[in-house]
Nucleic acid binder design. Structure first.
Length: 376
DNA sequence: AAAACGGGGGA
DNA sequence: TCCCCAGTTTT
């Protein structure tokens, strides 16, 4: 076999060229200016399923307010959540705070530097464990995310379905082999940087690729078909009526809101009271919506009078479902007080910002308080 | 193995 | 529109 086509030699070519490319082209990102394992950790959690450009301002605000692991551990959960508002996947930050408290408690406030301990932390899975160990401690551990699976699938022309966990495990083995001695931190970031900047999901920039000469996917003309990935199912639509209940008397200028349950979707965040209806058909009937809303709130001990006047529609898209929300104007019965123990509260423009809202309700209420109207 | 879990931006 | 993003946890 000619030396130029030897697989092991191709691996060494890939690692060497990619590392050199990274050392020339690396972006100047906030978390790359820090050597603090806690900062690396925060960035990795934020970057899960979230683009770099989105994360940058959140990261800066977060480490500005919680500069060290201990300050995050001691902060009120509400304030931590507030700094995550709008980023999504809110369990990430609850788990992060749980985990830093664990680090203070069991590891003297230092982020563990071995696989077993770091992996045991809440919210730290195989990717994040590898990222912390390699980037913060320069250990030869793979950090395989979507970028890495795409890059290596193309370069080595691997046809395994990257949606399968067995594929991630085998790619971790390959990724580990590729790490040049003593260069885990830069090499792992090089792999991800390459996936983000050059070997992008659609229309990869092969002409600018530092390793194009050894890319087996490209040599086979398969670079646009790889990686193989089974399609996700479409999100399921659900239909809901929400009540915009305006307060009277001492509650004038305020709106009735409620806090979501401690677990599950959007846990402990605030929302307009709303109720799900069986299907799209029911959603067309405003009188049915009025009945549903009044009944549902009455079961929570909150008496309101809804109208058949829709003040706007909103949509909230999750990975697995879509909320279609029709907002009906409503008012409280006379003497409707909200008891302390319930999850309901009156909120005005003054204290709006001290609550944490899913995006859809943040937009709805901002419209209401600032422009005094809601548009679909 | 599959579903739950946000939100936004690029093509 | 569709894809997918520096994924993890729960079922």
């Amino acid at each position: 076999m000619s030396a130029g086509l030897d697989l092991e030699e191709n691996k060494r070519y890939f690692s060497k060229e990619l590392l050199q490319w990274y050392q020339r082209e690396r972006r100047d990102l906030p978390w790359r200016r820090s050597r603090d394992p806690y900062h690396i950790w925060v960035s990795e959690i934020m970057l899960q399923q979230t683009r770099v450009e989105t994360v940058i301002p959140y990261f800066n605000r977060f480490v500005d307010r919680f500069p060290s692991l201990r300050e995050l551990a001691e902060a009120p959960e509400e304030e931590v959540l507030k700094h995550w508002e709008g980023l999504g996947y809110y369990s990430r930050v609850r788990n992060l705070q749980t985990a830093v408290r664990e680090v203070v408690e069991h590891y003297g406030g230092r982020v563990p530097s071995n696989k077993k301990d770091v992996s045991s932390l809440k919210g730290v899975g195989p990717y994040t464990a590898g990222a912390i160990l390699s980037i913060a401690y320069n250990q030869s551990e793979p950090a395989v995310d979507g970028n890495v699976m795409r890059v290596l699938s193309r370069y080595f022309c691997l046809e395994d379905d990257i949606a399968r966990s067995s594929t991630r495990i085998s790619i971790e083995g390959l990724a580990q082999e590729l790490i040049p001695g003593g260069e885990a931190a830069d090499f792992n970031q090089a792999l991800m940087e390459h996936g983000a900047m050059v070997c992008t999901p659609k229309s990869p920039s092969c002409l600018d690729c530092p390793v194009r000469e050894g890319c087996l996917g490209r040599l086979h003309g398969r670079e646009r078909e790889l990686p193989v990935k089974t399609k996700a199912k479409k999100p399921r639509p659900v239909f809901r009526f929400a009540a915009l209940v305006e307060g009277t008397g001492s509650n004038a200028g305020k709106v009735l809101v409620r806090q979501r349950p401690d677990s599950g979707l959007l846990a402990r965040m605030w929302e307009l009271p709303h109720v799900e209806v069986p299907d799209a058909m029911e959603w067309e009937s405003l009188s049915l919506g009025k009945e549903y809303l009044e009944t549902a709130l009455a079961e929570d001990g909150v008496r309101i009078l809804a109208t058949e006047h829709a003040v706007g529609d909103a949509q909230h898209i999750f990975t697995h479902l879509v909320w279609n929300i029709r907002v009906l104007a409503a008012r409280a019965h006379e003497e409707q007080y909200v008891e302390e123990r319930t999850s309901y509260k009156w909120v005005g423009p003054e204290d709006f910002e001290s609550y944490v809202w899913p995006n859809v309700f943040r937009k709805l209420l901002t419209e209401y308080f600032i422009h005094n109207k809601i548009a679909g």
